[in-house]
């Protein structure tokens, strides 16, 4: 019952703020190219989808994001594993990792366009680059964080290094890896949009930029709306995977509790 009222109140609050927005824009006669009323945004949204324009660009951005995310996090995971398991790899690679880590990866986007052109390849690489580091660092830390007592237990059973990796280090690293995936997903979307800003033939980021040239602010608002929903849904996907994989992690349960309060 309490939940019902909370939901009702949330909806009411949302509707009234939209209404207030509409009324304020009309009352002060704010021009649409500065700040559009919600009705104009809704119209732009409808027009965009009705003409099939938004679907096309949404598909393209999603493709970049997901491909870049998968590529970047897979590479990050494997290199992180190599660094954590092999002292030589760590010794030779770690300085570069530290150097690149402090570099804002999106600053490389113009160069990548020069090297790989305006096509999908270029945006996927840029996205992968951004998604790569959270996974690399988290995998590294996670694999090295196995508790000494647990290591001793495995050793006392005469476990091989291989078994210690599969039975202890890897599962132990999973909370870190999942946290890395969480961040990488958010970063991937940012990477994709920035790559499109810098130069692309399609995508929601490119669409925002061309709308900006045409002073189509309502259009931009509608695309922003789509982007925030896409971001939310991608994040939910990771969350669902996370809950399945980390059902045993006590800190995951605390998170769930907190989220239950929020929702």
């Amino acid at each position: 019952m309490k939940r019902f009222w909370n939901v009702a109140l949330t909806i009411l609050l949302f509707c009234s703020s939209i209404l207030a927005w509409e009324l304020i824009v009309r009352a002060f006669e704010i021009p649409t190219f500065i700040f559009p009323a919600p009705s104009k945004v809704a119209m732009a949204l409808w027009r965009g989808f009705a003409s099939g324009l938004y679907q096309k660009h949404l598909y393209y951005t999603l493709l970049e994001t997901v491909l870049g995310f998968l590529l970047g996090s897979a590479l990050g995971f494997f290199l992180g594993t190599a660094v954590a398991l092999n002292r030589y790899v760590e010794y030779f690679f770690y300085p570069y990792i530290v150097m690149f880590q402090s570099l804002p990866k999106v600053a490389l986007a113009p160069l990548i366009v020069v090297w790989f052109g305006l096509g999908l390849k270029s945006q996927v690489i840029n996205t992968a680059l951004v998604a790569f580091f959270p996974l690399l660092v988290n995998t590294m830390v996670g694999l090295k964080s196995a508790d000494e007592d647990r290591m001793n237990l495995m050793r006392s059973l005469a476990a091989s290094e291989n078994q210690i990796f599969w039975m202890l280090r890897l599962p132990n690293a999973l909370p870190f890896v999942m946290a890395g995936l969480d961040v990488a997903m958010i970063f991937a979307l940012i990477g994709a949009i920035v790559a499109e800003f810098v130069g692309a033939r399609a995508g929601l980021g490119m669409l925002i930029q061309s709308m900006n040239f045409n002073m189509d602010v309502s259009g931009q608002f509608s695309v922003l709306l789509i982007l925030s929903i896409v971001g939310l849904l991608l994040n939910r996907c990771i969350l669902l995977i996370r809950r399945r994989v980390l059902f045993w992690d006590p800190s995951e349960k605390e998170r769930l509790e907190r989220e239950r309060i929020v929702l």
Binding site: R150, N152, L153, W248, D249, P250
Partner: peptide
């Protein structure tokens, strides 16, 4: 067989799977 001061169980394994750890390893 070794028993430490803390139980040192693997949280991702059920009770049965924890008990069977030496069987898996060996």
């Amino acid at each position: 067989g070794v028993v430490f001061q803390s139980p040192v169980l693997f949280p991702w394994r059920s009770v049965l799977d924890n008990v069977l750890l030496p069987v898996d390893v060996q």
